[in-house]
Amino acid sequence: MAEQKPINPILKQVLELGPPLAFFLIYMAIRDETYSFLGTDYSGFIVSTIAFVPLMLGAMGILWWKTGHVSRLQIFTAFMVIFFGGLTAWFNDERFFKMKTSIVYGVFAGLLGIGLVQGRSYLAYVMNDMLPMKPEGWMILTRRLCAGFAALAVANEIVWRTMSTDLWVKIETFGFPIALFVFLWLQIATLQKYLIESEQDR
């Protein structure tokens, strides 16, 4: 396996957070516009979705070029964006892209749930090198995060089915990521007793 090359953390954040923010800005700029192509009218939301796909792929390409590595999570997310973005454009139906978020969160919850049924924490398998923790701590975090992803999937279904597209875009871009970050931070803070100190920290 090729060694991952270091990258400026600011550039890494720009590459990871830039495409969703660009989608938000493009949508806000053209949300009231209608564009015709080959006799079909497309809303500003559809056009923003189509523009988001190459932006995200370009950012991932730069990240891979700089680090020599793209995570499985990033590959999965890219596949989902391309697949549901393509369905959105093909059927000219914004519902496909909106339900993508529910499916992504649902898949994460399902994978973690499968591990829990097997008595395993897939989180520990993926993140133990970054966050050394006792097995019981990983199981607690996995159960909580499984429930958290399931809750986000349900929340997205409620938002896109009952609220305006403007509100969904804002919640998708800012609300869900912030909620997930705060949730994770709270979990790590409450699981301090399970963390394993490295030799350098002692």
Score class of each variant (00 low, 15 high):
residue 189 A to K: 14
residue 57 L to S: 06
residue 96 F to L: 10
residue 63 L to K: 01
residue 71 S to T: 15
residue 159 V to F: 02
residue 86 G to I: 05
residue 175 G to N: 09
residue 117 V to Q: 07
residue 103 I to L: 15
residue 72 R to A: 15
residue 68 G to I: 07
residue 12 K to D: 07
residue 26 I to A: 05
residue 98 K to E: 07
residue 186 L to G: 08
residue 99 M to C: 04
residue 119 G to I: 12
residue 12 K to I: 03
residue 27 Y to T: 03
residue 69 H to T: 07
residue 121 S to N: 06
residue 149 F to K: 00
residue 182 V to T: 11
residue 100 K to Q: 12
residue 187 Q to F: 08
residue 85 G to T: 05
residue 190 T to Q: 13
residue 16 E to L: 03
residue 17 L to Q: 08
residue 124 A to K: 02
residue 100 K to F: 08
residue 68 G to Y: 04
residue 56 M to D: 01
residue 76 F to E: 05
residue 179 A to C: 13
residue 55 L to C: 04
residue 179 A to M: 13
residue 185 W to C: 09
residue 187 Q to H: 11
residue 63 L to S: 00
residue 106 G to A: 13
residue 40 T to W: 08
residue 45 F to W: 05
residue 37 F to P: 02
residue 65 W to G: 06
residue 46 I to H: 01
residue 13 Q to N: 07
residue 186 L to R: 09
residue 66 K to Q: 14
residue 44 G to Q: 05
residue 85 G to D: 02
residue 35 Y to T: 13
residue 153 A to R: 00
residue 114 I to A: 08
residue 172 E to C: 05
residue 170 K to W: 12
residue 178 I to F: 12
residue 69 H to L: 08
residue 11 L to F: 09
residue 131 L to T: 09
residue 56 M to Q: 04
residue 180 L to E: 04
residue 69 H to Q: 11
residue 59 A to K: 01
residue 30 I to K: 03
residue 15 L to E: 01
residue 181 F to R: 05
residue 100 K to Y: 08
residue 28 M to Y: 05
residue 5 K to N: 13
residue 135 P to D: 15
residue 45 F to S: 01
residue 175 G to Q: 07
residue 20 P to G: 07
residue 37 F to S: 09
residue 51 A to W: 04
residue 69 H to R: 11
residue 173 T to H: 02
residue 11 L to D: 09
residue 30 I to N: 02
residue 42 Y to Q: 04
residue 179 A to G: 09
residue 143 R to G: 06
residue 69 H to A: 08
residue 110 G to H: 02
residue 153 A to V: 07
residue 136 E to Y: 07
residue 192 Q to M: 10
residue 3 E to P: 01
residue 9 P to W: 07
residue 76 F to L: 15
residue 200 Q to Y: 10
residue 190 T to D: 14
residue 199 E to I: 14
residue 57 L to D: 03
residue 47 V to H: 04
residue 202 R to I: 15
residue 96 F to I: 10
residue 197 E to H: 11
residue 135 P to C: 14
residue 98 K to Y: 06
residue 195 L to A: 11
residue 197 E to R: 14
residue 83 F to R: 01
residue 73 L to S: 13
residue 145 L to Y: 06
residue 98 K to I: 05
residue 12 K to E: 08
residue 35 Y to I: 15
residue 66 K to G: 04
residue 134 K to R: 15
residue 8 N to T: 10
residue 150 A to H: 02
residue 65 W to H: 12
residue 17 L to N: 06
residue 119 G to Q: 09
residue 117 V to K: 07
residue 133 M to R: 02
residue 56 M to G: 01
residue 75 I to Y: 08
residue 141 L to C: 06
residue 109 A to L: 06
residue 26 I to N: 02
residue 138 W to A: 03
residue 40 T to L: 12
residue 76 F to N: 03
residue 1 M to K: 07
residue 135 P to N: 13
residue 38 L to F: 15
residue 178 I to A: 11
residue 59 A to Y: 01
residue 201 D to P: 00
residue 76 F to Q: 03
residue 188 I to S: 00
residue 41 D to R: 10
residue 26 I to Y: 03
residue 170 K to N: 11
residue 54 P to L: 08
residue 183 F to D: 05
residue 40 T to H: 12
residue 23 F to L: 10
residue 138 W to T: 01
residue 19 P to W: 01
residue 156 N to M: 08
residue 169 V to H: 06
residue 78 A to P: 04
residue 189 A to T: 12
residue 41 D to I: 12
residue 73 L to W: 11
residue 130 M to D: 14
residue 25 L to H: 00
residue 107 V to L: 14
residue 99 M to L: 13
residue 84 F to R: 01
residue 82 I to Q: 02
residue 49 T to K: 00
residue 149 F to T: 00
residue 107 V to W: 05
